[in-house]
Write a protein that binds this DNA or RNA. Structure first.
Lengths: 192, 192
DNA sequence: TAGATCATGTAATTTGTTACATGATTCG
DNA sequence: CGAATCATGTAACAAATTACATGATCTA
């Protein structure tokens, strides 16, 4: 059992349920009504994923039968799940992830706040920055080639470059913001 | 047969083969070596998709057996495929597409150059701009909410806002560039 | 009290991923 | 002449989408 690696959706579920336990419908609402919306809120994706994670021992499943209502299955992060989650949170941003899983790097950033130390967060952002900068450089090399092609192709390429440059600026702001804050939640202020 | 709507990959295949016919491996190379890389270059995605499109009558499949080499199946855009492609190219950008299919709106832009008139392109960009602006406005409303949450959540939200604002700037530049060029390829300079 | 929407899912189908298979050609 | 890489796929499997199903509770 237990596929080696989890999907982005599964990681998102671990992260969200790690913040506060909830049911499939709670997750559905988050995906429906917050900017996390690029995940599908379709039940056919969420419920089976929760079940998979529970079967794999990464989530605890608990039946909630207060009162009259239909019983709801409430999921919370199991210990093994914490391990897997933090392992994922510590993964560096790669070119591959940048290109093939847009949003994943940012998702990881937004879920690491309470689980990684400030130093780790800064390291993560530094790696993020490097990966983006390298990709921008790669895209620049296409520019000459694209000049031979059509106008739209060139513009589309420039869209990509601009987008990632904008990401770079954000990363710098984010580093400053993280830095400005005192020692992180898990930062364990230097003893005494 | 013929599912109602095509996937983004299938639309991309129609667009690429509409520019110049080619084999599955040619497509693979494009996805592998150009910034179109967010499509999977895996043969398991490409070859079946080509077959589907050929079966549906949107692509023409032709066996190329020059000389010694293994025969390659060369695909080109069929007439029905042109219709479907142009139909898709004329679709407006929606919030849904922006959120759930990142990259699709830009792909459409880059494939419409030789098939839509300059006026249509400008209209498309105008719609694109509106959709992005509306989405930025939507994200702004979350900002207040996010202040209650953690720092990372707020930063992630601001990343989204910054990214789409950057997209707005690009759209303006693109409109200017398209406009600056003479009457478009399909623009049929005013008679005489 | 009828209709919406909350809350929970299941099932059929399609798509995409990963891994494998195969033969030709080019490179060291 | 052996290894890489070009070029073509197939097969098994996992995952996501779409559509359906069901009952409770709120609301006009």
């Amino acid at each position: 059992m237990a596929r080696e690696s989890l999907t982005t959706l599964e990681h998102a579920l671990l992260g969200l349920l790690g913040m506060s336990p909830g049911s499939g419908y709670d997750i559905h609402k988050v995906f429906e009504r917050t900017p996390l919306a690029h995940f599908s809120s379709s039940p056919g994706a969420i419920y089976p994923a929760l079940k998979r994670l529970a079967r794999a021992g990464l989530l605890d499943e608990e039946m909630d039968r207060r009162a009259e209502a239909r019983p709801r299955r409430v999921y919370s992060l199991a210990e093994e799940g914490e391990g897997r989650l933090e392992e994922w949170l510590r993964e560096q941003v790669t070119r591959e992830e940048l290109v093939r899983k847009p949003g994943a790097s940012l998702l990881r950033f937004s879920l690491m706040e309470s689980r990684l130390s400030k130093a780790e967060v800064v390291t993560y952002l530094r790696g993020f920055r490097e990966a983006v900068a390298a990709y921008v450089a790669e895209l620049e090399t296409y520019r000459e080639m694209a000049k031979g092609g059509g106008l739209h192709a060139l513009l589309a390429l420039e869209n990509g470059i601009a987008e990632y440059e904008c990401e770079l600026e954000w990363i710098d702001r984010a580093m400053a913001a993280v830095d400005a804050r005192g020692a992180g939640h898990r930062g364990r202020r230097k003893r005494r």
